[in-house]
Design a protein around this nucleic acid. Structure first.
Lengths: 341, 341
DNA sequence: CTGTTAGCGCGTTCAG
DNA sequence: CTGAACGCGCTAACAG
């Protein structure tokens, strides 16, 4: 299949017997043009359904007005929300967006960066894959002076702006909530330990415990690789503890849902026997039975802030010095942690 | 912030004292080159970290190897799955993807088409917004000979390839299932009536009833605009029917979940008093209580098929004649329709 | 085997 | 007020 021909300035110039530069000037409403010829040109341009070729334009000014975005998983509701925020505010400022997903693979992440850079995007917005444990590709971007920001899944050592949630704070909120409702033996279920968010949320968990004078107990910290199978393994492990803990804080909602589902299948009652809480406030979390206590992270807002800051930097509205934007989370208490005190 | 400079063929040509075309040839491994100079060029290109400028390349060959995708809502799990499938298979064939969302607005849809076309995408993949009720913009694409396909939310009169689900078939499956489990007074809750899928699903619903010798009853067909408020209005309306219907088929899962949530709040038991079923198999539907009977629509698969067919057409592997690809759905029976017969 | 020339579509000199 | 010439980065046809 061959693409239909697009009208160029050249053609409308020929049709009107003027030069291409005159057409160019008329189309950008240059003041130094005879009103009559200008009108004529604009009119026939419309008539011929002329659309400027952004490619040629970009090549000329060496700016594409396009941003590249890389997320681990587009099907995750959280990242989809981020993208939505990014798109809306990028468009508002005249930028387009190219989206890639790394599928949680560092190789794919590197490949994505490569194609986006080859496509001459003006800047990148990256949320790192779960697998990313070395950072040469990011340092290379930095060294090549290609502007980019990191959001949500960041790495601290890279000298660029970062937008994150106050993960420690959110974990503190939810652990504190469990403590307030009377829990005293609280398990933390963590994702892969080298993940930034795993660490930060553990920090908040421990801080809340400390404030209640409860000391850290290694047996109460479990680690899953976040696959369903491994999540269920953890759920079993907790179910076998004697005595049962009275509260469980899962690092992320889908994990909590897996645990809850397993427990329901073996007759463990939430919240009567164990209070349960997650993190992120996925749409799913509000409709499980019982509804899951969690912490909400507004993805749309994160996307909006990240892109706005990046464009501010690109447009020279703010300094290029990297900054760190930290968004607050909100506790969403639901039935899964509602214990009689 | 200014973007770092990218190495061009010109620079590596200068450095080596050869012409730009020689560099070009070396880089694409042309056979008619002295092995030694070729080696030398490739080597220093690597050294200088040369990356070809896709923009210039595209301008030259007037093909961008980029596809434009427009979906109503990127945060919908179904459309996110479609996008995922599109991306994976587009990349596999050397194409990039630019994604836009119309936010269910026809004006945004038109604007998206415009920017994607201006960006010189080689083809478009469009799923229409809920609001789209006239089609000039699509006919214009067609007249301008810009290749595109429609998927999921299609309009029949446009002479391009379409990929859809067998909506009538799916509705038939689920209605038939309700009938088999003993329901005899089944309400169909429809979305906006001019929506293609509203009509098709109603067709399937009516066909199943007919086969059981049950005649159409207008009181048993409700219409919502799919906002939460309106969904709840319908839930109330059904709850007030006397006698209660014994089964309800909601056109789409989120609607069914809204209805279920309301009923639970007023003490109506599902499936004991009313069997309930939805459509689409959202992740949410499997975890509500009771789990929702529904019909699964594999979005990833749809994206994959749509993009593969489009690229086949672009690459001349199949005829340009429009075809219609219809994907089958699968009944997912769950507890919400599990009645003792 | 390699350099020169031309042109993709556009915008910006620099001349008239 | 308008046209001709040049260059963005790259490739291909045409000469040597």
């Amino acid at each position: 299949m061959k693409k239909g021909h697009q009208v160029t300035m050249k053609e409308i110039a020929k049709k009107l017997g003027v030069s291409v530069s005159t057409v160019s000037r008329a189309l950008k409403d240059s003041p130094e043009l005879h009103e009559e010829t200008k009108r004529k040109i604009v009119e026939t341009a419309k008539e011929m359904n002329y659309q400027p070729n952004l490619l040629a334009q970009s090549l000329r000014i060496s700016r594409t007005k396009t941003l590249g975005v890389i997320v681990p998983e587009i099907t995750s509701h959280f990242f989809a929300s981020c993208i939505s925020g990014i798109q809306d505010f990028a468009n508002k400022r005249g930028y387009n967006v190219m989206i890639c997903q790394s599928n949680e693979s560092i190789d794919q992440e590197i490949a994505n960066i490569k194609t986006l850079v080859a496509s001459q995007v003006d800047a990148l917005m990256i949320s790192l894959s779960r697998e990313t444990n070395h950072y040469e590709h990011l340092f290379e971007l930095y060294n090549r002076e290609i502007p980019f920001v990191l959001f949500d899944r960041v790495h601290e050592d890279i000298p660029v702006s970062k937008v994150t949630f106050n993960d420690a704070g959110g974990a503190y909120q939810v652990t504190n909530h469990l403590l307030e409702t009377g829990c005293r033996s609280i398990v933390y279920v963590s994702g892969p330990e080298d993940l930034y968010i795993s660490k930060k949320r553990k920090e908040g968990y421990l801080k809340a415990l400390r404030e209640y004078g409860i000391e850290e107990n290694p047996d109460f910290i479990k680690v899953t690789d976040l696959t369903e199978a491994d999540n269920i393994r953890i759920a079993k492990e907790i179910a076998a503890m004697n005595p049962l803990p009275d509260g469980v804080f899962c690092m992320i909602d889908p994990l909590a849902v897996d645990v809850l589902t397993y427990w329901k299948s073996v007759g463990i009652k939430v919240p009567e026997q164990i209070a349960l809480a997650g993190f992120t406030n996925n749409p799913t979390s509000g409709v499980v039975e019982p509804p899951l206590t969690t912490v909400s992270q507004p993805g749309y807002e994160m996307g909006k802030l990240a892109v706005s800051h990046l464009l501010d930097q690109l447009d020279g509205l703010v300094s290029d010095d990297p900054i760190s934007i930290v968004l607050d989370t909100t506790l969403v208490p639901r039935k899964s942690s509602q214990r009689s005190i």
